[in-house]
Design a protein around this nucleic acid. Structure first.
Lengths: 216, 216
DNA sequence: CCAATAATTAACTTACTTGTTAGTTATCTT
DNA sequence: AAGATAACTAACAAGTAAGTTAATTATTGG
């Protein structure tokens, strides 16, 4: 009487796609803590149901595995962003949407912010899939400029402002473990906390960006 | 005719304090790229005029060296912050001062933001000198609450807002290498750029935080 | 059900990294 | 100026980590 499909690697043996995915998931967690340089292949393997050799079987090297993780991160991201159809919204609405979307994404993949930050710090972003990071930022910058032109936003410097907006969001996730002490016992990743942080950020950013004669 | 005091380690031989300082400086640069885990003692030594053995002679281990670097970072920081005398300023003035001070500090030690971010991501902040990070955050939170009480600021959630403020500042330095592409050829650490970023952040944050019936 | 192939492992090799040690050179004291 | 001590180095030992290999086990198609 063999169990056909237990949770762990017990059954469902030998499914290459599942194994690749397991490795990618484990790698994402490991890379999100140490980045490419400090990640240990042994440690990644330990998080999966398979041996280290499988990493090399499917991904050839730690570096290529890292590339694959990055790729997957950004693909998901781009997919989501394209579905937003920001052009059909007013600039303030679009901005609110972008911010809310950022938090949702981070909430779904809490490792995201750390991985991107680590890649930037450790490797100057050279492993980012070509221009993908640019696309995401440019979208926000474009939206800000549209809002300035329409008079919804005050005349601000779009690039610097975009940095401030993304930064305020990313920081919550990057410094999560340190911010913990402000809310003892609370899980900073629980939906309620994320929601409060998101709302507070949205309010501040919107008020900071809107032309003084406008309001939402 | 021996040179008495050339720039490198040529002359001025055997000055223990200078050597310790050289090691700390080199370590700071190395730790700011990879964090404790990815930093190589060999690589730190290579940045100094002395051998790796000196690291162990003066600091015993990579970990203790890391602790020393952290300590020095925070000591400087606390010193500066205490001199601000925020209590003698109105809340909006105090906030402007805090923001401007953050940028100045980061400008002086561009590795700072990366080191703190890496420590948080890699080690959950366990190497921060006891409570020092808390003090810095609490100061900002206290100031925000004072502003809410006085009616200068709108009723916001001080902790979340503090995170947004610090985040928008830190991100510029953390993601510096990636943001580079927005200003091709420009040095993001040059005083003019920092000044523009700082001004833009100040404007946005202040507008985002001030009660709607107030202005600076 | 058997052969071919794909997935997987355990054990190993090679390169790197931390930390040590024994010995060397400069500086300071008397 | 000699002896003591502090600063320093080169070479090494021990442990760790990346990547490989040869053999093993499951799956699939005829």
């Amino acid at each position: 009487m063999p169990k056909p499909n237990s949770l762990r690697k017990t059954a469902a043996t030998r499914d290459s796609e599942a194994t690749k995915c397991q490795i990618l998931d484990a790698a994402m967690i490991e890379f999100a803590v140490g980045g490419l340089a400090a990640a240990r292949t042994e440690s990644i393997a330990a998080k999966t149901g398979v041996t280290k050799a499988m990493i090399y079987y499917y991904f050839n090297s730690k570096e290529e595995l890292y590339r694959a993780v990055m790729q997957r991160c950004f693909n998901e991201d781009l997919q989501l962003v394209k579905q937003l159809n920001l052009d059909q919204l007013t600039p303030p609405q679009a901005l609110v949407t972008v911010i809310s979307n950022m938090y949702q994404k981070m909430c779904k993949r809490p490792q995201m912010a750390s991985i991107l930050a680590l890649e930037s710090i450790q490797n100057s972003g050279k492993y980012y899939p070509q221009q993908t990071a640019e696309i995401l930022f440019d979208q926000l910058i474009g939206l800000l400029e549209r809002g300035i032109d329409s008079g919804d936003f005050r005349p601000l410097e779009s690039r610097h402002t975009a940095i401030n907006i993304v930064g305020s969001c990313a920081f919550y996730f990057i410094a999560r473990e340190n911010l913990q002490h402000m809310w003892p016992g609370q899980d900073l990743l629980c939906p309620e906390m994320i929601d409060r942080q998101s709302k507070e950020a949205t309010k501040m950013i919107l008020a900071g960006v809107l032309a003084s004669d406008k309001s939402v």
